[in-house]
């Protein structure tokens, strides 16, 4: 999509992401049990439930306000690594959403890189978010970006984690998809279903 997304579209996107996180809560937690500390599903579900409640209670007037509220709610409700990372993603998107979804997602991605200091190939959400941004920047559709995020998630399976709690496992972290890359793939899937 080349036009800037509307408040309604973004609300639909975030609501759909919350649904997907809730549906896949156990899957995300199981992935995190294998290589982390078994809290990604419950934390993201708790955070996105709070986001949807905050947006329903007082619907923001414009796209930037909506993204800011989403990010601030995640930062103050989630904790762990996902709170600051997903929170920063949405907060940074708020500053660039007037230019369109692709520049906003890129700005959010830059924020995630700065906050988490992870690089591509470290087996983190960066491995799903980066390829999605690349597709959008090259003029691809949101559906194509979602596919790139899903491929990026799958590509984390053989990787050895270098960031986050999975990194403590060393070689034993290989063989499982990264939970953060998996939730990010759902974020893009939700975008493909609501923003295209």
């Amino acid at each position: 999509m080349s036009d800037a997304p509307t408040t309604e579209q973004l609300t639909a996107w975030i609501t759909r992401f919350a649904e997907l996180v809730h549906e896949h809560r156990d899957e995300l937690t199981a992935l995190d049990s294998a290589i982390g500390d078994a809290d990604h599903g419950s934390n993201m579900d708790r955070g996105m439930t709070a986001v949807v409640a905050a947006l329903t209670e007082a619907p923001p007037d414009d796209p930037a306000a909506l993204l800011k509220k989403t990010g601030a709610t995640l930062v103050s409700k989630v904790g762990g690594a996902s709170g600051p990372l997903y929170g920063t993603l949405f907060l940074r998107m708020a500053g660039a959403v007037g230019e369109g979804f692709a520049p906003a997602l890129r700005a959010g991605f830059d924020g995630v890189l700065a906050r988490g200091k992870a690089e591509p190939g470290d087996k983190t959400m960066v491995d799903a978010l980066g390829p999605a941004c690349d597709v959008l920047d090259a003029g691809g559709s949101v559906a194509e970006a979602a596919q790139a995020a899903a491929d990026g998630r799958d590509a984390t399976v053989p990787l050895v984690a270098r960031k986050g709690r999975a990194s403590y496992l060393g070689e034993r972290s290989a063989g499982h998809a990264d939970p953060g890359a998996t939730s990010t793939a759902y974020l893009l899937q939700a975008a493909a279903e609501t923003l295209s």
């Binding site: 500390d37 078994a38 809290d39 419950s42 934390n43 708790r46 930062v75 103050s76 409700k77 989630v78 904790g79 762990g80 690594a81 709170g83 600051p84």
Partner: peptide
């Protein structure tokens, strides 16, 4: 105190 095994939040 955060949630079980989860860092507290900045607030």
């Amino acid at each position: 105190a955060g949630e079980v095994f989860t860092s507290p939040v900045p607030d």
